[in-house]
């Protein structure tokens, strides 16, 4: 095989810069989608906990849509679909400022919110009903019992699943390449096309993904251990 590995070719000048930009975009996608997703997940969980059929059904529909349609298609819907709904002026402006990343953040955040709210919900459901009863028997109000007894247990119980979602989200940011967001895998593909350095380009991108994923995995297992709720 006449192929000589030469990582120096890719790890310098313009290519290095592209990789670093890619990493930065990946992290922006990851962090912002995570924060928005988590906040929205909490809102969805609360709304679904309120005994009002129409809003409960709405949240359920939201969750099922995001769980049963591929993330890539969810990105397409925002990217291609929103453009026709918005007036041209807005679209031109959005394209000037690089709207792809905005669409990607919205789509990824909504998707994660759906999954995370389900994790919270199953966390809540695995708390024994007697915990609520005991909290109320002390004289706490319903909201007080939620605040001081149920939720502190629910988030601990949901934590491992939420951390799992975090890793999936990090890897999922690569799908934004599908709508042209110049994140890490997009840059790797671009560098490969420009330089024909297939193994170097994908090798470096893969290594970076693994490094960050391992960090997330390590942190996840540390946090899960630290906050594990031990119930007899």
């Amino acid at each position: 095989m006449g192929y000589q590995l030469d990582f120096g070719k890719v790890l310098q000048g313009e290519y290095l810069e592209l990789i670093l930009q890619g990493v930065q975009t990946t992290m922006v996608l990851f962090v912002l989608s995570w924060i928005f997703g988590l906040v929205l997940a909490i809102v969805l969980t609360v709304v679904r906990a309120i005994e009002f059929r129409p809003t409960q059904l709405l949240v359920a529909a939201f969750v099922e849509y995001h769980r049963n349609v591929p993330v890539l298609i969810q990105l397409f819907v925002w990217y291609f679909g929103l453009a026709v709904v918005l007036p041209d002026v807005v679209n031109d402006y959005l394209n000037d400022i690089g709207a792809e990343i905005g669409y990607a953040i919205v789509a990824l955040a909504l998707n994660k919110a759906a999954y995370m709210s389900e994790d919270f919900r199953s966390g809540m459901r695995s708390i024994h009903p007697a915990q609520m009863e005991a909290a109320r028997s002390i004289g706490l109000t319903y909201l007080g019992a939620m605040r001081w007894v149920i939720l502190p247990q629910a988030w601990r119980l949901a934590l491992p699943a939420l951390l799992g979602q975090t890793l999936i989200l990090f890897k999922g940011t690569s799908l934004a390449a599908g709508i042209g967001v110049a994140e890490l895998s997009y840059q790797a593909r671009y560098i490969e096309e420009q330089s024909f350095r297939i193994f170097e380009a994908y090798g470096i991108a893969t290594a970076i993904y693994m490094l960050i994923s391992f960090a997330i995995m390590w942190l996840s297992s540390a946090l899960s251990k630290r906050f594990r709720l031990r119930v007899k």
């Binding site: 890793l167 890897k171 999922g172 940011t173 690569s174 799908l175 390449a177 895998s185 790797a188 593909r189 490969e192 297939i198 193994f199 994908y202 991108a205 893969t206 993904y209 693994m210 994923s213 391992f214 995995m217």
Partner: peptide, 17 residues
């Protein structure tokens, strides 16, 4: 290792490399 890599990267490897 597999869990640490996005599926898209595996697809790139399989398809291009």
């Amino acid at each position: 290792c597999v869990r640490a890599v996005p599926l898209l990267m595996l697809i790139f490897w399989a398809y291009f490399a």
